[in-house]
């Protein structure tokens, strides 16, 4: 193994660890001899799953006191690095908080970042990252050319999470230096907007709707079909921005990456930014009235038709079977 130590920032999902952290830990332990995780909030309850995925230590910056994770976690990591304890690489998820941490850390330690990584491995002269560009039609490889720990920002679902059989990670507290103005933002309340049923990024079946649904009320067809198939409803950014459905439904570059058994795209054109979030689905079915829609270029089954006709018929046919 070429690398000694990798630090993995373990993103949180409520009190739990976000699944993406297990994916990053799994990859990190394939590359480096020692893997340590860094998180925020209470760490004792997550030491077991984090350890089971390969981290020997779990450092937490502790309670954020209402602050955002970005400034506190970045400052604590930077302090450890300047005290001489730099790892070879730092893996951070391309999530909302992950980007904040990576950006702050990069500026603090004056090191560049590589973002939107979908794979990483050892190559000539160190780690080489892989990035899917132009909607995943081209693969770009990159690497750092200067010293110091590389900051790698990695997309969810890039690797499968596997347990290592390790025991609980040893928990300790990492002191956060005085943040001054950069730590001044306060979270007053958190709102959860997820629907019942399986989580979008974990569901085996995802039914997504786009602008082709015509109006906000058209999304009911997506929810009904998803429910019948025991799947999760998703969306294109266009209808999220239009306020038809919450942001937590968004699939794509800025939204969630999904890898279901079946992805059913209804009235979605197939913009590059949408496709990077769903093109790894095992089966893709698309319904679109425009035969030229780019989504058909990656669909296993394409139905050229009106979603307002096809979906009600499909829903009725499935209902009559159950």
């Amino acid at each position: 193994m070429a690398l000694n130590t990798i630090w993995v920032v373990a993103d949180r999902s409520g009190d739990k660890v976000a699944t993406v952290a297990f994916e990053l830990l799994t990859k990190a332990r394939q590359i480096a001899g020692t893997v340590e995780a860094i998180t925020w909030g209470d760490a004792s309850a997550i030491a077991a799953p984090v350890g089971a995925h390969g981290a020997t230590a779990l450092h937490t910056v502790g309670d954020l006191g209402g602050g955002l994770p970005g400034p506190a976690v970045a400052a604590a990591i930077a302090a450890k690095i300047s005290a001489g304890g730099a790892p070879d690489a730092i893996f951070i998820a391309q999530s909302y908080n992950g980007r904040d941490i990576a950006g702050r850390l990069s500026a603090r330690i004056d090191r560049p970042v590589l973002t939107n990584i979908v794979d990483i491995g050892e190559g000539d002269g160190g780690l080489v990252s892989e990035h899917a560009i132009f909607g995943g039609t081209e693969i770009l490889n990159a690497r750092f050319t200067s010293g110091g720990p590389g900051i790698y920002v990695i997309r969810a679902k890039s690797f499968a999470a596997e347990e290592s059989g390790g025991g609980p990670a040893a928990v300790d507290i990492w002191e956060v230096p005085d943040l001054g103005a950069v730590g001044a933002a306060r979270v007053l309340a958190s709102h959860v907007e997820e629907t019942s049923g399986p989580k979008l990024d974990e569901a085996a079946i995802v039914v997504s709707g786009g602008r082709g649904l015509g109006e906000a009320a058209g999304y009911k067809l997506i929810e009904d079909l998803a429910k019948l198939l025991k799947g999760a409803p998703g969306a294109s950014r266009a209808i999220v921005d239009a306020g038809w459905v919450p942001y937590s439904h968004q699939v794509g570059q800025t939204g969630k990456t999904v890898k279901p058994t079946v992805y059913i795209a209804c009235g979605i054109s197939g913009a590059t930014q949408h496709m990077v979030g769903m093109k790894s689905a095992k089966n893709i079915i698309a319904i679109n009235k425009d035969q030229e829609a780019p989504i058909f270029s990656i669909a296993d089954l394409g139905v050229v038709g009106d979603v307002k006709k096809v979906l009600p018929q499909l829903i009725e046919a499935l209902q009559s079977r159950s």
Binding site: I139, N141, A299, G302, L314
Partner: peptide, 26 residues
């Protein structure tokens, strides 16, 4: 402090069957 080392075409996902809905597409 970083460089692109290579750019290669990704393995293309092949388009499958496309059918035009005639009322039975579902």
């Amino acid at each position: 402090g970083q460089e692109i080392t290579a750019v290669t075409p990704a393995e293309a996902r092949k388009a499958g069957e496309i059918v035009v809905d005639d009322g039975e597409g579902y």
